[in-house]
Write a protein that binds this DNA or RNA. Structure first.
Length: 498
RNA sequence: GGGCCGUUAACUCAGAUGGUAGAGUAUCUGCCUUUUAAGCAGAGAGUCGCGCGUUCAAGUCGCGCACGGCCCA
């Protein structure tokens, strides 16, 4: 006895299901041969509209029924496959009494296979006239309402499959995301890069300032961390002779969820030997212009009401200049920690006294400058203490050959000439370790194995990371990162049995 | 972590001042062989997110919790 309380709708469907089964009807067959897509039919009628209307030309398509208009002895249905939606006309005298009786038992949401020819209805819509109609898969649960679709954001994210069925624009976002990644991959492969996969589980998490997820390997009896960045491994590959290498993969960071953050997110990182951070800025301009053209057909996009132009050449400004010119800070106080602290506090920016000047400056930047950087802007010359893996600037050893890219007020990329002096790298790690001991949980740990790799010699190189989710947001005009991640992170929900 | 908002039928949403819970779509029954959110006639469908409280009486008021959205840190 099933005492589970079910809705009337669900009960109806289940009853119907067992009734059909009792009549020996296979509701989940796998022998219907699909020979055409909706797109195939559309192309065919476009090219030879007359020749397709004869009964000799038969199409064989399948898809999910999205709407049904049932009359007594004939019916119109709308169904869709991966290429689009189409209409079919089912007539009792064409498919036969038995098939028509079965058809009338079907529901919106069921998958059907149709063989038939093409005709135009009175209103001029191309329609497939079914000679044969078969059920290909029975849906037990009803789809959301056809007109309003599925709107509840919680349900859209938790049951993304429903979102994808009901909201075509959502489907388009993820198709576009796939295309973006494909264009990027091709862009680098054409430039003689090699694609690599480096560890997601790392004994020492590094390559970024963030808190990692921790896990455990039972057989090895060791703790491991989900990576916060692939950087240190990709640079080991540069040591190993992969002079041009990239990876597109997931990073994991224990941080709050927001419209800009998901605990797991996709990052493109690439490294090129003998290049400088200047070269990478040029490369980045090329990548974005190319991407924009490939994806949208134009070098500019509209993001949340702002027109953004990707064609060359983007503004390049040093961090300090940006604070002065865009943030409106008196340059005289930038070198004095006490005055900086005072300024920060008077602007409501929370800073601890322990923070070193570089940290304070970048925090001020985040609040005062970043939101104003709408057009693509490279901000350069970051202080050494916030750039533990970057090469020191020749002109000022307190600065690094580094840039961050901002678009629409958001950090999109971070790149720099790589620090390949193992002794300097070791000293930087030591400083990070001491920051950590003073309570900065996000500072790097000492990675002796990485130092050893550098001791074998890493050619001069430059590397960059680009956040794929935020990039996708730009090209899909999405306000929240959850709109570009298929299954965004959610707390488990206590669900009612339905 | 803080603020504001949301959670009512499968879906989209209404439910002033507390007084037996509503619509459209979907579902079920009947009619209908060119519909386009098809039409006509009829019917069924709800732990009002969860808990506690106030009250003769709570979807509605109060407190707490859960989940979600937006903003802030």
């Amino acid at each position: 006895m099933d005492l589970e309380k079910t809705s009337e709708l669900l009960e109806n469907r289940r009853n119907k299901l067992s009734e059909l089964r009792d009549n020996n009807i296979n509701l989940f067959p796998n022998d219907f041969k699909v020979l055409h897509t909706v797109q195939d039919i559309r192309s065919a009628v476009k090219e030879f509209p007359e020749s397709k209307t004869d009964d000799e030309t038969v199409f064989s398509v399948a898809g999910r029924m999205m709407a049904m208009n049932l009359f007594g002895k004939s019916s119109f249905i709308r169904f869709k496959d991966r290429t689009g939606q189409f209409q079919a006309y089912i007539r009792k005298d064409k498919v036969g009494d038995e098939a028509y009786a079965l058809f009338k038992q079907l529901d919106i949401g069921d998958f059907v296979g149709i063989r038939g020819s093409i005709f135009k209805t009175k209103t001029g819509e191309w329609t497939i006239l079914a000679f044969e109609l078969r059920i290909v898969c029975k849906a037990i649960r009803p789809l959301p309402e056809k007109f309003h679709g599925l709107k509840d954001p919680e349900k859209r994210y938790r049951q993304r499959y429903l979102d994808l069925i009901m909201n075509p624009e959502v489907r388009e976002i993820f198709i576009r995301r796939s295309k973006i990644i494909q264009v990027i991959r091709t862009f680098f492969l054409e430039r003689d890069y090699i694609e690599a996969e480096t560890p997601m589980m790392q004994p020492i998490p590094g390559g970024a300032e963030a808190t990692p997820f921790q896990t455990h390997h039972n057989a090895l009896g060791m703790d491991l961390f989900l990576r916060i960045a692939p950087e240190l491994y990709l640079k080991r590959l540069v040591v190993g002779g992969f002079e041009r290498v990239f990876e597109i993969n997931r990073n994991f960071r224990t941080e709050g969820v927001s419209t800009q953050h998901n605990p797991e997110f996709t990052m493109l990182e690439f490294y090129e030997a003998y290049a400088t951070y200047q070269d990478l800025m040029n490369l980045t301009e090329d990548l974005f212009s190319h991407l924009s053209l490939e994806i949208t057909g134009s070098t500019s996009i509209v993001y949340q009401g702002n027109n953004i132009e990707f064609s060359r050449k983007w503004r390049r400004i040093s961090l300090l200049k940006a604070l002065e010119e865009i943030g409106g800070i008196d340059p005289l106080i930038l070198n004095e920690k006490d005055k900086l602290l005072e300024f920060a506090n008077s602007n409501g920016i929370k800073i601890t006294k322990r923070n070193r000047t570089g940290k304070i400056i970048t925090k001020l930047f985040d609040v005062l400058v970043q939101p104003k950087l709408i057009q693509p802007t490279f901000v350069t010359d970051y202080p050494v203490e916030v750039s533990p893996l970057s090469r020191r600037s020749e002109k000022d050893p307190a600065l690094t050959d580094r840039f961050e890219l901002f678009i629409a007020g958001r950090e999109i990329a971070n790149g720099f000439s790589e620090l390949n002096d193992p002794e300097d790298q070791k000293a930087r790690f030591m400083q990070q370790v001491s920051d950590r001991q003073e309570g900065d949980d996000e500072s790097h740990c000492m990675d002796e194995d990485y130092i050893e790799a550098l001791e074998y010699g890493m050619p001069p190189a430059a590397g960059e990371g680009i956040g794929i989710d935020r990039l996708t947001m730009l090209f899909t005009d999405a306000a929240s990162i959850r709109e570009v991640i298929l299954f965004p992170h959610m707390k488990p929900q206590v669900q009612r049995q339905v």
